[in-house]
């Protein structure tokens, strides 16, 4: 009984933090489900992909993987490129995800941008179990995403209006995430390094092959300019 009380208390504390994510994930999840639907996939696809991949940006890109010729190596490289940022979330969460028992496995699996952001920044009251709090944040976000994607996949077939251009939601999402990051910074060295590396490599290597050189370029320039960037605070 005592355990139930601890678990429920953590849920009550966690839920309000996830309300904005609910709105965002339903909008993007439904959009993603519709996008899958109009691309010719049954609702099972967005539902199961939402459940087992649980990564918004990659799932949008995965639609184009599924519509292209089979190319597993390219899919793996693209996946690792798009998801590489999680490596750094993990580094930030090494301490916070300690001592939470079996829940650590699920927390690692479900560490999307939003779950990471909340679990990293939330001030969890002393009386609330941290492990269960982070579990509920991750779990609620996961369920919002899966239900939105499923719903989009189901109602997509009932859509009578022209959905051409709907996939721009993904671009808009990245623009907003980038802008949020940009507005927080004092200097923008790292943003410029990322932008110029990507544009230059896109022009040099073409639309299909520029991501790997871009990542290498970013690592190279971040390493070369480490001293001035750290001195000037070229990031938050």
């Amino acid at each position: 009984m005592e355990k139930n009380r601890v678990v429920m208390k953590a849920l009550k504390t966690a839920f309000p933090y996830t309300i904005p994510i609910f709105a965002g994930f339903w909008f993007l999840g439904i959009t993603y489900g519709i996008y899958m639907n109009v691309s010719g996939f049954s609702f099972w696809y967005p539902m199961i992909m939402g459940l087992i991949i649980f990564a918004g940006s990659l799932e949008f890109v995965a639609v184009s993987f599924l519509l292209s010729p089979f190319h597993p190596l390219q899919v793996l490289i693209m996946t690792l490129m798009i998801q590489a940022r999680h490596l750094f979330y993990g580094i930030s969460m090494l301490d916070k995800y300690k001592n939470v028992g079996w829940k650590k496995w699920y927390l690692m699996f479900g560490m999307c941008d939003e779950s990471f952001s909340i679990n990293y920044s939330a001030h969890i009251p002393e009386a609330v179990d941290k492990g269960w709090f982070m579990f509920w944040v991750t779990f609620l976000n996961h369920m919002y995403w899966v239900s939105g994607a499923t719903l989009g996949g189901l109602v997509g077939s009932l859509m009578t209006f022209d959905t051409n251009g709907l996939d721009f939601a993904m671009t808009a999402m990245f623009v907003v995430i980038f802008l949020e990051q940009f507005l927080k910074e004092k200097k923008h060295w790292t943003a410029w390094i990322g932008f110029l590396s990507a544009v230059t490599c896109r022009l040099l290597f073409g639309a299909e092959n520029f991501m790997v050189p871009t990542m290498i370029g970013i690592l190279l320039f971040l390493t070369l300019f480490r001293k001035p960037i750290e001195k000037e605070g070229g990031f938050l």
Binding site: R85, F88, F174, F178, T190, F195, A198, M215, I218
Partner: peptide, 24 residues
């Protein structure tokens, strides 16, 4: 060095992802 990358990478990566969306 890893701690530094963890702080420096996010902006660069989000900028890259915007370009990625517009690649075509």
């Amino acid at each position: 060095y890893i701690q530094y990358l963890g702080k420096a990478l996010p902006s660069a990566i989000f900028a890259m992802l915007v370009v990625y969306c517009l690649k075509n």
